[in-house]
């Protein structure tokens, strides 16, 4: 039971950390929503507001990635193995982010 406490505390800490830096990406998300609905598509203001949206994707991806490690740690009760196994997931994630950034 005590072993299970580590991952739970870790995931709570992760949520606190992600939330504390999350105000900026959330603001960006709202600005993008506004741009999509209110700015003329293809106008300079539209392009300027849309640029930088990758911040949101990075924020989500990083939070998700650390949560997967903690989840696996909780399941197999072995942190170093969980970290070790996250390597290929990280590789896939970076590829997705790179493809998104190019778009």
């Amino acid at each position: 039971m005590l072993n299970q406490l580590g991952p739970i505390i870790a995931v709570l800490l992760l949520i606190c950390l992600a939330a504390s830096v999350g105000a900026y990406p959330i603001k960006k998300l709202i600005r993008i929503q506004e741009a999509k609905h209110e700015l003329r598509h293809g106008s300079p203001g539209f392009f300027r507001t849309m640029s930088g949206w990758i911040v949101i994707a990075v924020w989500v991806a990083v939070t998700w990635f650390f949560a997967t490690i903690i989840g696996e740690w909780w399941a197999i009760e072995d942190l170093s193995a969980a970290i070790h196994r996250s390597g290929r997931r990280l590789e896939l994630l970076l590829r997705i982010l790179e493809a998104l950034a190019d778009d």
Binding site: V11, L14, A18, A19, V60, T63, A67, G71, E72, A82
Partner: peptide
């Protein structure tokens, strides 16, 4: 949003 993303990641892992 952090809760949702972290929960999703946790279950995934």
């Amino acid at each position: 949003a952090s809760c949702a993303v972290a929960a999703f990641g946790f279950v995934w892992g």
